[in-house]
Each structure stands twice: as structure tokens, then as C-alpha cells.
Design a binder for these strands. Sequence first.
DNA 1: CGGCCTCTTGAGACAGTTCAACCTATGTGG
DNA 2: CCACATAGGTTGAACTGTCTCAAGAGGCCG
Lengths: 247, 247
Amino acid sequence: MPQVLPALSRKLALFQPVLPSERLLLQGLQRRIRHFEPGDELAYEGPHRSNAFILEAGWCYTFKVLPDGGRQIVTIKVPGDFLGWRTILLRTSDHGCTAITPVAASEIDHDQLRQVMVKAPRLAASILWAASRDEAMLVEHLTSLGRRDATLRMAHFFLELAARLNINGEVEDNSFDCPLSQYVLADLLGLTSIHVNRVLRKLREAGLMVLRNGRVTILDLAGMIALAGFDRAYLDQNGIDSGLKPT
Amino acid sequence: MPQVLPALSRKLALFQPVLPSERLLLQGLQRRIRHFEPGDELAYEGPHRSNAFILEAGWCYTFKVLPDGGRQIVTIKVPGDFLGWRTILLRTSDHGCTAITPVAASEIDHDQLRQVMVKAPRLAASILWAASRDEAMLVEHLTSLGRRDATLRMAHFFLELAARLNINGEVEDNSFDCPLSQYVLADLLGLTSIHVNRVLRKLREAGLMVLRNGRVTILDLAGMIALAGFDRAYLDQNGIDSGLKPT
DNA sequence: CGGCCTCTTGAGACAGTTCAACCTATGTGG
DNA sequence: CCACATAGGTTGAACTGTCTCAAGAGGCCG
């Protein structure tokens, strides 16, 4: 029996406590674990019935590709996140999903999920809360692309990421692992990888943050927050902050 | 007794038929109609309990404001759309909402909605389908801001808008009313109003589309679709197209 | 009539792109 | 164990899409 659900239930507990009975229902959803290697596709764009997952371990990104070959990364997914849930009801998968690191994900049985939603309204509310929070992050990302310049986008993204990872206890000493290449950051933030490189250098030289060897360190938290105009209210995680401390 | 729900139920019927009993439940949700004038705020950003609506008549936009005074319009809402539903479960309203035209909207009672979700799972699925579709549109918009240039963004937006409005039968002769100022289009598409003006001119001079006196006319549908790389699959409305015809 | 909002156009500036080169680390087959 | 390929990162120089600043025109309303 695989050890399951710590990340998801810890997140849901930010909304309301997960009762023992609900914990069992979640475990039922998380029985079928599948594994993927970096670069594997968990879902494809197109009109076929696509799978929904709970990401248990590892990182993925979801993306859209454009006719000209351009790619827009929509979200970075970390353990505890839902994957592909939007396509449970839509009849087409509107995006692809690729593993960044080795990934373990539990595949959701649609009928079983339907049962949970109908028979456990309280848990259903927790799940819909998490989905609403995902959408709020999407809106914030959209705002970044529309109205923040490259530097602010970068700073804002890493502050959000720290807050999300801290739910899983992955932030320590103002620092966390981050397996995102500059190419991925570029397609996420609507930039070129060349410009990502320059922006990261600027943040480093300003003493704000460093990304090196797959690890992020926030050097000046107050400076980052002021720069990005970051207000974590939209993450709705009052109980738990970014894990970062002023220096 | 106000005449209610044609737009929403027509939209939900694109997913599955709305049964008579479900129609009654929807009518129950749509009892408390409120009216707003252009410029009125239906919701504010901030940590208070915000209201959820179904937009019955008129147009709104939702937006975020940045510390530097910049504004990003997140979505344009037309009759039949949900407003503020994300903040039903989140404990903070992450965006504002402003009426563009005179608006009639039914205010949703949260407890009553909860009842519907629990007691009418089939209708709940239709509602969640519509919410998923809204999210898919958000993702497409995000992709526009990240990886499409100003002209493609504009063309893509108006093709999507036509498809949405055609559900309400508002598209006729490749033309539809559109009360969006160039300032609103600018904040929606992450541009300045000056550049919006130039892009609209370019589209007009290319014989692709015209926006004049609050009315859009698509002059060259195939050209627009090819230019924007528009694929309406993400709207998941197989039953009904954009109402536009090749010329 | 004056004030305001929206639309329009021009000219110069700049953020970010494109193209090109080179560097380092890691892995692989001969 | 070297030769080579690949992936990620770094830097420079020229180019361009979009912005900023500035000015003016048309329509609507009090």
C-alpha cells in the first residue's frame, strides 16, 4: 500500500479540517498510482477523453501550443495539485501536461469522483475550494502577463511558488528546490530564455534572489515583495505563509 | 415575475438538456434581480464576503488593479455568464467587477446554491461544466497575453466573443453589438488604447473586421480564423458555432 | 457653450526579441 | 578514456513591437 495524500490533505486542511471519513474517501481516490519520467506527457491536447490526476510527487507543467510553434506554459504543478480536472466535464482536453521531474500521480476514476462529490458534500466543498484557488492563481498569472514587466513577473512567480511549496514543508532557510530550466521559465512568463537569463542576473545583482543549480534562495524578502507588489491574499492560505523570513 | 434564465439555460443545454425540474431550481436561484448602471461596481477587491451573480442582461468586466495603477481586465462577461462564483469558497474577493452597460443580474444565495449542488447532482454537473468552460477561456486568454502579438490577440478575442454571443442569438449577418471602448480592449489585451486603435485600423484596412459605433462586423471569417489560429474546440459548444458565415 | 469621453495620428523611446557565438556540465559510443 | 553530442546557461549587438508623450478631432450632455 503506497503512502498517499499528505500533500493534498495538508492543502485542503487550509480550507477546513479533513475529517477521518473524508481521509478515507481521498485514499480511495488515490489508489491507482502511475509513474512518469521527465518529458513524459500526462495528457495531450485534443478531443479525446483525458485523464485527471492528483500529483503526489514531482513537478509538471501544463501548456498550450500555437500554430506558429510557440508554447505557453499555463501552470507549474507541484505535489498536492490537481491535474487535468478541467477536462473531466469538458469534452476536449484544452492543454497538454508534461512531467518536469520523475512524477508519481494518482489517476482519478471519474465515476468514483462523482460519487464523492454527491455523497460527501463537505469534502466536495474542500475540493472546489482548491479548484477555485487554482483559478485565482491563473488569474494572477494572466495579470502578470498582461500588466507586469519581466522583472516583476519573475519576482511575483517565485514568491507565489514559495508560498505553495511551504504548504508541503519544502521551504527551508529562505530556499527551496526548483527544477525549472530557463526555457521553461521563459514559456511560463511569456519571455525568451535569453531575457529570462538577463532578468535573473538583474535580480541576483540586486541582491533579491538567486536561482542556481536547481535551487532558489530569496535573499531580500521585503525587497521582493515590494518589487512585485505581492499580496498573497489570493492564495487564501492564512494559516501558512511562504516560509520565507526577512533577513 | 421577471422573465428569467433564457441565456444561462441555453448555455447549459450545450452540455446536456436542462430538465423541467432543473429549470425550476434555476428559477429559484434567479429570483433576486438587481440592477446596475454603467460604471457601477458589482464586486470589489478585498477580504469581504463578496456576492455571486448570474448575469441576465448587459455586459460587465472583471479586473485586477496593480500597485502602480495599472489595470488588467480578466474577462468580459455577457448574459448567461456567472459572476464572482470563484469567491463563494475563497475567503477573499481576488478581483473587482464593473458594469459596462446597464446590467440586470440575479444575486445568488450561497445556501440555496449549496442545496442545489447537493440535491441536484445532474444540474450541478451542468454548472460545473460551465465553470470549467469559463476556466478554459481564461487559459486561452492567458495564452494570448503570453504568446500572441497584438493583432492575433485582437482577432482571437473577437472570434471567441462571436461564438459566445451566438449562444444568445446575438450574432446576425456576421455582425454583433459590442459596447467595449478601446480603453477596455486595451486593459483586456494587455496593450495601450493607442495601440488598440492602430491594430483595429490594421484589421479594418486588411478587410478582416470592423468595430465602429459599438458594433463589430467580421468581413473575412476565413482570414480571421487563419490569422488568429482560432480553434473553438476549447469552448466545447459543438452544437452551436460562432454564427459567422464565410463571405 | 464648455467639458468630457472616445477616438485618431505622429514621433521618439525602450523593453524585449532575434541572431549569433561561446561556455560548462553531463552523458554516450567507439 | 577520448571524441562527440546534447542540454542548459551566458553574453553581445542589432532590430522591432509596443509604449510614452503630445496634440487634435468628433460626439454627447448638462
